[in-house]
Design a protein around this nucleic acid. Sequence first.
DNA 1: GTGAAAGCGCTAACAC
DNA 2: GTGTTAGCGCTTTCAC
Lengths: 340, 340
Amino acid sequence: MTLRQVAERAGVSIRTVSNVVTGAVPVRDATRIRVEQAVEELGYRPNVAARRLRSGRAQAIGLVLPDVTVPYFREFADDVFAAARAHGLAVVVEQTRGDLDRERSVLADPRLRHVDGIVFASVALDRDDLAAMPPPGRPVVLAGASAFDGPLDAVAPDQYAAGHAVGDLFGRTGRSRPVIVSADSQRSPLQASARYQGFIDGLADHGVDFGDTGGGQAVLRSAAVTLEAGRAAVPTVLDRWPGVDAIFANADALALGVLRGLHDAGRRVPEHVALVGFGNVEYAAHSHPTLTTVDTSRAAAAQAAVKLILQRRDAALPAAPQHLDIGFTLVERESTGAGG
Amino acid sequence: MTLRQVAERAGVSIRTVSNVVTGAVPVRDATRIRVEQAVEELGYRPNVAARRLRSGRAQAIGLVLPDVTVPYFREFADDVFAAARAHGLAVVVEQTRGDLDRERSVLADPRLRHVDGIVFASVALDRDDLAAMPPPGRPVVLAGASAFDGPLDAVAPDQYAAGHAVGDLFGRTGRSRPVIVSADSQRSPLQASARYQGFIDGLADHGVDFGDTGGGQAVLRSAAVTLEAGRAAVPTVLDRWPGVDAIFANADALALGVLRGLHDAGRRVPEHVALVGFGNVEYAAHSHPTLTTVDTSRAAAAQAAVKLILQRRDAALPAAPQHLDIGFTLVERESTGAGG
DNA sequence: GTGAAAGCGCTAACAC
DNA sequence: GTGTTAGCGCTTTCAC
């Protein structure tokens, strides 16, 4: 079924059929109805490839993320699916496992060539990597923490402010021996991040010096962003910083593992140790105790990213990279002594 | 960058460049190297849309599933990504939430029009639905239990045999009061399924009559395939069938919830109650106790489905629907008294 | 508001 | 083994 066949059947030109189908140009009612009937009878469906070749629009976006196994990214994927759906866009998914080499090369992957733009949840790339990458040739929007002020478009919460909110929470609830559990890498250490800086500043506002926990810098690097990794981190934390009374885990999966680890170790949350995660995954509201965490506006980020891609594709935006702050919320729950 | 420009630069015809790029037709070494150099210098990348329009191949498949939130489907998605990757295919993901209407209409979704074929993990469609659907117009492979012998291609384990293996396990380990927890629907009740028939036959081989558990048919219908739903089902099970000594949960997520529910109720697994799940999700090997379950060869199914799509696309297969039995394994773990 | 026609970049049939 | 060429089905000037 082609436009031509429909045109013949309806006794109009191919142009008119196209106008009816795309809806871009108004068509006289009588003509339109005749065309619609022909379309219906012939079961005509536009050929996406031809349309794309001619128009340069794929009506599809790429979604690059580490792994749908990690709760946070799974939920983010969900949000991107919804946002894309709202714009009639298909979503091509590509996983990187958080692997640096994969993240470096993924934008050149032929399987992502036929998309209008890419939502890229990077976890391994730093500013230098991004600077070294060839221009992607189509809109790419970074989602999340990575290199917020780099050369690419980005949507993310204000990491400094988010860290600050957590530090402030610990400070104002009288915690003075905080420890951080983080899955950061050697390449982009937590200590270099705005989130970290915000955290210690937030503590300092209440006269708490992060150095005071003892044992040097109270940061434990976890091997992975998993429940198991979080759980496994606890004995080390308790051993190295026996006086710990608060833990900031840099991802909810980690935090939920820490929660279990603390339970195993006989420490009560929040009585002995306050606990805060990052990401506000669904399960954070269902754990026992429920988990205080930073909600990073995943859905808003997904929507903003998709919209940005569309705007760039349709050339409504200047070339300068956009960096959208999509906000965050500190969700206080039982793990820091809040009511629900 | 087009083929033409590369051809000019290399001093050959467009045809030769095409031959080099696709690798379909052998090209003399000297020529090939010259072309490759031109490709490199110009940074030429084939235009996917043009290629697809001309060749009719999208080099992409669709993956339709209920929800990447359900562990089983998340892991299946992982397997499909890997299989597609191995063939250089992109994957367009579409979620249905397991909703009947969505599943009925999803194959007509324009966002899935530009794919070579679709791997369809259906949970809601029954034989009549499938028969009533218009011919999809491109390869569609059902993955999982749904309508294995229907008009569409399908890859699935032998449901009767799988059910039988579980019934047999209960029977041979002396369980005589089994209960089933299932998230089946009114429309396609478990009792009509081969898996169920196999289960009761497996029990019968050891002289156990599934009717003997008392209280009518010992099947509890759960509202959803989630941990919470499994957990919530336990009090009802214990109330309705107090003598229960074995539970077959028709999905691992459910089983893991049941595991918790039994713990909450003070019943020990496997001492008081043996428990078997279905699907062998990753977490089944890490719960306490570890979960006995039916491994449905997800990876094999994913690979077979992708291969089938490719074969159909390239017309190497007759029109008759293929129904591939990809086997299963009963993985015995602690929840039925096995060692590991 | 509608028709005629060009051509997006590529593959493949046809020549040699 | 390579050149020439005809479209794949569509959008989009350019006319009227």
